[in-house]
Design a protein around this nucleic acid. Structure first.
Lengths: 88, 88
DNA sequence: TTTATTTATCGTTAATAGACGATAAACGAT
DNA sequence: ATCGTTTATCGTCTATTAACGATAAATAAA
């Protein structure tokens, strides 16, 4: 895991809402965008944008099923990330 | 450690240069701004700004000694941060 | 086929970030 | 007292981020 990839993940987690989204995804394993929209006081487009950023960082992945997209944390990436930090 | 504090640290680490600065500080324990300036291809003011951000996040602390400022990683904060991530 | 549901994207706006050079401030040395 | 060293801050510019509403695209249901 190189510095650029790490920076992307750190940056993605550098927003309170995105931290909470990731925590929520870890808790419930997987969920669709609409569920997350209902939790936070932000518009659908804003949440979708946050999810896009998280996805682009690699820490979250999304699977399209019909009109819905199921989001979940990529545990392989999360574990590599954890390992990096533990070695600091 | 609340979400806002965590987000600040994640955000501070969300830049390749700042990651490398922190890695370097961990390696050599403590050093002055000028040393870091010599390592990176950025101006003194840019590095100083990066250090300020890191300091504001709490992950780095600076101690003024005469005209120099000695920077180092705050291990207590780093450990709390590590612990949070490990519990994810 | 039309309607409802769900999500992504576009366009916009305001705020923040990242870089720089120039300058000021603090101190040590001469 | 002056000069050199070191760092922080200011002002500027460009780029990116964060939020929104509106809209488009895809599918499920009626």
């Amino acid at each position: 895991m190189n510095t650029a990839q790490l920076a992307k993940i750190f940056k993605a987690l550098g927003h309170p809402t995105r931290i909470k989204i990731v925590e929520h995804l870890i808790d419930i394993n997987t969920c669709i965008c609409g569920e997350i929209v209902n939790i936070f006081p932000y518009s659908q487009s804003t949440i979708s944008q946050h999810l896009k950023l998280l996805k682009e960082s690699g820490i979250v992945c999304g699977e399209i099923e019909g009109p819905k997209t199921y989001f979940c944390v990529d545990k392989a990436v999360l574990n590599k990330f954890k390992q990096y930090i533990q070695n600091l």
